[in-house]
Simulated assay, not measured.
Amino acid sequence: MAPVPNTLNPLELIARRWQPSAAFVRRAALATVVMAVIIVVTGGAVRLSQSGLGCSTWPKCTPDSLTPTAAMGINGLIEFGNRMLTYVLCAVVGLFIIAARARHPRRRSLTRLGWAQFWLVMSNAVIGGITVLTGLNPYIVSSHFLAATALLTVAVLSWKRAGEGDEEPRDLVARPARQLAWLLVAATGALTVIGTVVTGTGPHAGDAKKVHRIPLDWQEITQLHVDFVYIVVGLSVALWFTLRAVKAPAAPRRMLLELFACIAAQGVIGYVQYFSGLPEIVIGLHMLGSALVWIWVLRVCLSLRDRGPLQEEDPGRPAPSGTHEAPEPQAASALSR
Rank of each mutant, 00 (worst) to 15 (best):
R213D: 11
Q179E: 07
L184C: 10
V132I: 09
A155V: 00
T192E: 13
A177V: 09
T199D: 10
L184V: 11
T153A: 02
W182C: 12
A147F: 03
W119K: 13
G206T: 08
I127K: 07
N124T: 04
P138F: 08
L183I: 08
L157Y: 04
L113M: 08
R175I: 07
T134F: 06
S142C: 11
I127Q: 09
A205C: 12
W159T: 04
V126L: 11
A181R: 10
L157Q: 06
W119Q: 05
A162S: 04
N137F: 01
A150V: 05
A125C: 10
A208G: 01
W119C: 11
L172P: 04
R161C: 00
L113R: 03
L151R: 00
V197E: 11
L180D: 10
L152I: 01
G135N: 02
T131K: 02
K210W: 05
T201A: 15
I214N: 11
M122G: 09
I221H: 12
I140C: 00
L136S: 00
R161D: 02
L216E: 15
W115F: 13
G163M: 00
F118R: 01
L136C: 02
A190N: 09
K160E: 06
A186K: 13
L152H: 02
T199L: 10
S123Q: 10
N124V: 04
L216W: 14
F118C: 07
V141C: 06
Q219N: 15
G129Y: 09
V173N: 04
G195A: 14
T149Q: 06
R175Q: 07
L183N: 07
I130A: 01
G114R: 05
T222I: 12
W119P: 08
V198E: 12
A190W: 07
T222N: 14
A186R: 11
Y139K: 02
R178A: 09
V132F: 04
T192Q: 15
Q223P: 06
I127F: 02
G200W: 06
T196W: 10
I130Y: 05
W119L: 13
Q223G: 13
T188L: 13
A150M: 06
T196K: 08
A174K: 06
V185E: 08
L133N: 08
A190F: 07
V211F: 10
G163K: 02
V141I: 05
A190D: 05
W119D: 12
L216D: 13
A190E: 10
L120D: 01
W159A: 09
S143R: 01
T199H: 14
R175A: 14
V154T: 03
W182D: 15
T222F: 14
